[in-house]
């Protein structure tokens, strides 16, 4: 394997969060679709208007899932919002369940 220096990235959070254009580019999607996701409260960016919106890692992951649900499962925005909220809820429950399972085991 070639020997080269390790590269450092930026954590997508706080002051390194993504702008609307950057998020759209990362998703290979149109900004209007991201704006629609925000209108459905599926994404909650920092900032008051689209020009200064910023999106963290959690938003990026959520938007990736949302896009896949729209494209691959043909869900509408309200259905996507519901699915994402339920998935978050399942994540929390599974985390708690794993802690309790370890305790019981």
């Amino acid at each position: 394997m070639p020997n080269f220096d390790a590269i450092s990235g930026e954590l997508v959070q706080a002051d390194q969060a993504l702008s609307l254009e950057e998020l759209a580019h990362a998703l290979h999607a149109n900004s209007t679709l991201i704006i629609e996701m925000v209108e459905f409260s599926l994404l909650v960016p920092q900032g008051s208007n689209p020009e200064n919106w910023s999106f963290d890692s959690y938003s990026l992951k959520r938007a990736q899932r949302a896009l896949s649900f729209k494209r691959d499962l043909e869900l509408n925005m309200q259905g996507i919002a519901l699915a994402l909220d339920l998935l978050d809820h399942i994540d929390e429950l599974e985390t708690q369940l794993n802690i309790l399972r370890r305790y019981a085991g």
Partner: peptide, 15 residues
């Protein structure tokens, strides 16, 4: 070869 910073959490993304 990528540096992963200390304190990263699951689900975080590095750009």
């Amino acid at each position: 070869k990528v540096k992963i910073p200390a304190g990263i959490t699951s689900g975080q993304q590095i750009r």
